[in-house]
């Protein structure tokens, strides 16, 4: 896997806004940013209301994904360029999700909305309507999705990469510092996990660090390239960002995202939890 196959620059994107077969999609949990101005021609995907099942804690099913992409006017042959706010967390989540359902050609806009805005590139409020398509999705590719039992079985034998902030990892905080701390589950991390905050993989402007820098960051944290890997965070979006760095940029083959993440693990009865920084003294 090379960077050019999975990542495009803001400059490339601006030059390809009109290119047939290239569809831009903004993905966020809070879509008010899109409504206030988006990349010209980009469709909106609402992470919460369109990608999550409204009742169960799970994704929309295969049929639901087909229906969604058909309605958005995305076809199987399109190159889909995903971007969003929050340093592309939700766009990275959507990227993983598109891969899960077998979309062939999907890429992230490096730096997402932040880089685009900092560059002063154009945004508009035009309503984007694309002709409906007939999208056909694959069964979920479970080689990139981890569930709780596998996570518990992986303690001590796979790389468990906890990408939350050090204070969430240690058990001091239960959510990122831009959110109130009201969660009910226990604090801490999965035993044997290494803590590499997602932000280590990103530059200040939201773009990904170079492959060399990324390799060094994970090696320094004790990431073992010969082992299989599961990444997790609180709900699975920050870890999609790291999943992208490890699998799509660095080319590690067996990397899964645990979308249940800490909100599931930290609420399970009877599973082991480790507190503190996790580093041997």
């Amino acid at each position: 896997m090379s960077r050019e196959n999975v990542l495009v620059s803001a400059a490339w994107s601006e030059e390809n806004l009109q290119t047939p077969g290239v569809v831009f999609a903004e993905v966020d949990e809070d879509t008010t940013a899109y409504d206030g101005g988006h990349i010209p021609g980009a469709v909106k995907i609402d992470w919460k209301n369109e990608l999550q099942d409204p009742i169960r804690r799970d994704f929309v099913d295969r049929e639901g994904f087909e229906k969604l992409l058909s309605a958005k006017g995305i076809s199987n042959d399109d190159t889909v360029i995903l971007y969003g706010g929050n340093n592309n967390w939700f766009a990275a989540y959507a990227y993983w999700y598109f891969k899960l359902y077998g979309h062939n050609d999907v890429k992230l806009l490096d730096g997402g909305r932040k880089k685009w805005e900092l560059d002063g590139r154009p945004l508009d409020k035009e309503e984007v309507v694309r002709p409906t398509t007939s999208y056909s999705a694959q069964e979920q590719d479970l080689s990139i999705r981890a569930f709780r039992d596998e996570v518990v079985d992986s303690i001590g034998n796979k790389n468990l990469v906890d990408v939350r902030s050090p204070d969430e990892f240690s058990g001091k905080l239960l959510a990122p510092a831009h959110l109130p701390q009201e969660q009910a589950q226990r604090g801490g991390h999965i035993p044997s996990a290494v803590n590499v905050p997602w932000s280590k993989a990103a530059n200040e402007d939201g773009t990904f660090k170079s492959d060399d820098e990324l390799r060094e960051i994970y090696a320094e944290a004790g990431f073992d390239g010969s082992r299989k890997t599961i990444a997790y965070c609180r709900i699975g979006e920050r870890s999609s960002h790291t999943w992208f760095a490890l699998r799509e940029l660095l080319g590690h083959e067996d990397v899964k995202n645990y979308d249940g993440s800490w909100t599931e693990y930290g609420s399970l009865v009877g599973v082991p939890i480790e507190l503190g920084s996790g580093k041997e003294a």
Binding site: E29, N86, W89, C233, I235, E237
Partner: peptide
């Protein structure tokens, strides 16, 4: 609040 980790409106 939402269930996600996204930054809320300031």
């Amino acid at each position: 609040m939402s269930n996600g980790c996204g930054a809320p409106t300031q």
